[in-house]
Computed example of a mutant assay.
Amino acid sequence: MSRTATHHLKRYLAGHPHYASVTVEAKPAAHDEVAVGDDVYGWRRDVYGPNAAIGGTDDDRMLAEAVEGVRYVLAQSVPRDRFLVTVTRVLETLADTNVGDVKLAAALACCEAIGITLADPPRLEPGGALFP
């Protein structure tokens, strides 16, 4: 049985916008693994049309943050069942998404999808995302 979860980070902190929305799907597995879905940025075609720009340096950086966020949760939460967690959607904006926002949203989505609460969860601080 798989579980899907989305975390929407929408906040102003110290006068700075922080926006990211990440969806993950978690399935029981023999060992922890993180994967990336086939169409993580497919939402852009719905918004901007069939020729929407997908891929490139910024997308790679945001996707790497999402994977880091999921890996952080999997490393911090033992013992527990093992999961294959797939990042299926990353939504961000050039103007409002800061470094660490996607990582934070992915981590919190992963927690929900695998049904855990970290003792000291990552959070947003005035300086950005904090991963204890």
Rank of each mutant, 00 (worst) to 15 (best):
M1H: 12
M1P: 08
A5R: 08
A5G: 09
A5H: 07
T6H: 07
H7Y: 15
Y12R: 15
G15N: 09
H16W: 06
V22L: 02
T23L: 04
T23A: 08
V24G: 00
E25A: 11
A26E: 06
K27V: 10
K27Q: 14
P28S: 10
P28C: 04
A29S: 10
A29Q: 06
V34T: 08
A35I: 03
V36K: 04
D38T: 01
D39E: 12
V40F: 09
R44E: 15
D46A: 12
D46M: 08
V47A: 10
Y48H: 15
A53D: 15
I54D: 15
G55Y: 14
T57P: 02
T57S: 12
T57A: 13
R61E: 11
M62V: 06
M62G: 02
L63F: 06
A64G: 04
E65C: 00
A66G: 04
E68H: 07
E68P: 00
V70Q: 00
R71K: 07
S77Q: 13
S77Y: 08
V78H: 09
P79G: 09
R80M: 10
D81Y: 07
R82A: 09
F83W: 13
L84E: 15
L84P: 02
V85Y: 00
V85R: 00
T86F: 10
V87N: 01
T88P: 03
T93N: 10
N98L: 11
G100I: 10
D101R: 08
V102N: 04
L104I: 08
L104C: 08
A107Y: 01
L108M: 12
A113P: 00
I114L: 03
G115W: 06
I116L: 04
I116C: 04
L118W: 06
P121Q: 14
P121W: 13
P122D: 04
R123N: 13
L124G: 03
E125R: 01
F131P: 02
P132Q: 09
P132G: 08
